[in-house]
Amino acid sequence: KELVLVLYDYQEKSPREVTVKKGDILTLLNSTNKDWWKVEVDDSQGFIPAAYLKKL
């Protein structure tokens, strides 16, 4: 599985998104959309702007 590093805090703005903190390491589930990547946070899944993430 691929991991990503969160570069900036992000507060979810819709139920399909997730809240993350700078420095979090998350599992990347889908990066086919260049603007929004799907990640797994704890036991939930959701989208975060790709610009907030860096592949490890």
Rank of each mutant, 00 (worst) to 15 (best):
D35I: 14
Y52L: 09
S44P: 00
K22A: 13
G23V: 01
T27W: 12
I25E: 02
K21M: 07
S14C: 12
L26R: 01
G23R: 02
P49L: 05
P49C: 06
K1A: 10
L28Q: 01
K54T: 09
D42H: 13
W36C: 10
I48Y: 02
L53V: 13
E40Q: 14
V39P: 00
K22R: 12
Y8E: 12
V18I: 14
V41R: 11
E12H: 13
W37D: 00
E12G: 15
N30I: 06
A51Q: 12
V6M: 02
I25V: 11
K54M: 13
V18S: 04
E2H: 11
L28H: 00
K13Y: 08
A51I: 13
F47L: 08
L29H: 03
D35Y: 15
D24L: 07
K22T: 06
W36N: 02
L28V: 05
K34H: 10
V41Y: 09
P49M: 05
L56W: 07
D9M: 03
Q45G: 06
A51G: 10
V20G: 03
L7Y: 02
L7F: 02
I48D: 03
L29K: 04
Y10M: 02
Y52S: 05
A50H: 04
V20E: 01
Y52M: 07
Y52R: 03
S14Q: 07
D43Q: 13
V6P: 00
Y52G: 06
T32M: 10
Q45R: 10
Y10L: 01
S14L: 08
V6D: 00
D43P: 03
Y8S: 09
Q45M: 10
K34T: 11
E12R: 15
L53M: 04
N33F: 07
L3T: 07
E12P: 14
V4Q: 00
S44Q: 15
W36K: 04
A51W: 12
V6G: 00
L3G: 02
T19I: 06
K38C: 15
G46E: 10
F47M: 08
W37N: 01
S31R: 06
D43S: 13
G23A: 02
L29M: 06
V4E: 00
V20Y: 07
K55M: 08
L56E: 03
T32D: 14
N33E: 09
S14G: 13
L53A: 09
D43I: 07
V18N: 03
D42W: 09
L29G: 02
K22F: 05
E12I: 15
Y52P: 01
E2S: 12
S14F: 10
S44T: 14
N33Y: 07
K13P: 05
N30M: 08
L53Y: 02
S31W: 10
L7D: 00
K13E: 08
P49Y: 04
L28F: 02
L53S: 03
E40Y: 07
V39R: 00
V6Y: 01
D35Q: 11
K1I: 12
T19E: 04
V20C: 08
I48K: 00
Q45S: 13
E12Q: 15
I25N: 02
V41M: 10
V18K: 07
T19C: 08
K13C: 11
N30D: 15
T32W: 09
V4S: 01
V4K: 00
E40N: 05
I25G: 00
K21D: 02
Q45K: 09
I48G: 02
K55A: 06
E17I: 06
